[in-house]
Amino acid sequence: MLNALEVITTVLVGLMVGVELSVAFVMNPILNALPDDSTQLGNAHGGRMLGALMPIWYIGSLALVTTWAITARHHEGTGLVITAGALLLLSVIMSVLLLVPINNRNKTWTPDNRPADWKQQLNRWNRYHYVRVAVIITAFTLLVTALA
């Protein structure tokens, strides 16, 4: 049972890392290369789509890592799992405090109602997102190391 939990948790966190890497290094450069109206509309749509999915994924991943840490508390590598869990918790806190407020504004914007500083706000979101991606990559690496 523990082996299945370890593998499922690692795969789900790895997939989350992949999605967030794709947002940072594939989707955002594509959207930013479009004309301003299309860039803004694409970001707003992405904010609505991923804004609905990612909280479940982040909280679910954190819950699975916590379950793994509790279940395997007497096994080797538990310290790595606990550290990964702390990093995932940090990513959730970062999301709630830094990224979600910007996303909540962005997902309601249209070319007609966007603020003058909309690009600066999206650039700020991107900078926070890069840090969050580094945090979850580190958490994923720790989980893989604990699994090995």
Rank of each mutant, 00 (worst) to 15 (best):
M54Y: 02
V7K: 06
H129C: 08
I30S: 10
R105Y: 10
L53G: 07
T138N: 03
P55F: 02
V100D: 05
V7M: 10
S38I: 10
V13K: 00
L80V: 03
R132S: 07
M54Q: 02
T39C: 12
I82Q: 01
V65F: 07
S95V: 03
L88Y: 04
R105L: 12
L5H: 14
I30F: 12
G47A: 12
I56N: 14
L80F: 06
R48P: 04
N113C: 09
V135L: 06
N32Q: 10
L12D: 10
I82T: 00
L62Q: 08
L5T: 14
T141S: 12
V135T: 04
E20L: 09
A148K: 08
G60M: 03
N106R: 13
A134Y: 06
L122W: 11
T138M: 07
V17M: 04
V144I: 07
N123D: 13
L122H: 11
I82P: 01
I70V: 08
I56A: 15
A52F: 06
I137D: 00
V133K: 02
M1A: 15
M49C: 13
G47F: 06
L31G: 07
L90D: 14
L50G: 04
L80H: 02
P101C: 03
T39D: 15
L31H: 06
P35C: 07
K119H: 05
I93L: 05
A33L: 08
V133Y: 09
M1I: 14
T10H: 04
Y58C: 10
G14A: 07
A148V: 12
N104V: 11
H129V: 08
T71N: 13
A146Q: 01
N3F: 12
I30W: 11
L147S: 11
D112Y: 11
Q40N: 09
P55L: 05
T39A: 14
N113S: 09
G18Q: 03
L41E: 05
H45C: 14
I102H: 01
P29N: 05
V133N: 05
